[in-house]
């Protein structure tokens, strides 16, 4: 049987315009041998989920610096569930206060990375926690 390549969507939901972090993560994923679908800035939760489904990704990694994480991340999760794609793992990174993380995890966001996390840690987390769709 041929081998699965890990596919990850990297995107930025909502209105923040800073994509340096998202690009660094995309690059680290590329160097780890993943196929990264980079959707760029200003994506609505609906656009992110549709792209994730069309691209058959294993994981959606969202970068968010705007402070709207408590609204946008659960919205993405809800639409994933609604569209029958609950198996796609949702993770996030960005300027997210520690206090908000338990609530986000409860809402179904698998992991949240805060500033200062090394790319090795994030790549390692994906390797340990994401199994490509059978």
């Amino acid at each position: 049987m041929a081998e699965r390549r890990v596919r990850v969507l990297v995107g930025k939901p909502g209105l923040d315009g800073h994509d340096r972090g998202a690009k660094i993560i995309a690059r680290a994923f590329r160097d780890a041998g993943f196929e990264v679908i980079y959707t760029g800035l200003h994506q609505t939760p609906e656009q992110i989920v549709s792209a994730a489904i069309q691209e058959d990704v294993d994981c959606v990694a969202l970068s968010i610096l705007s402070g709207a994480h408590n609204t946008l991340l659960p919205a993405v999760k809800e639409i994933l569930v609604e569209k029958g794609a609950a198996d796609i793992v949702l993770m996030a990174g960005g300027v997210i206060p520690e206090d908000d993380i338990p609530g986000l995890k409860k809402a179904g966001i698998a992991e949240v990375f805060t500033p200062g996390t090394s790319t090795e840690t994030i790549v390692g987390w994906v390797r340990d926690n994401i199994t490509p769709h059978a």
Binding site: D31, F34, E35, Y38, T39, S50, Q54, E55
Partner: peptide, 29 residues
């Protein structure tokens, strides 16, 4: 595809993702 890692950054969607949630369009990278 990167000849070294086998990974890739597929970025064509950036320019066309406004069509992502249009049910009449299917985009695959």
């Amino acid at each position: 595809t990167s000849p070294f890692s086998g990974g890739a950054i597929l970025g064509d969607r950036i320019r066309m993702n406004r069509h992502a949630d249009d049910a009449g369009v299917f985009i695959r990278s």
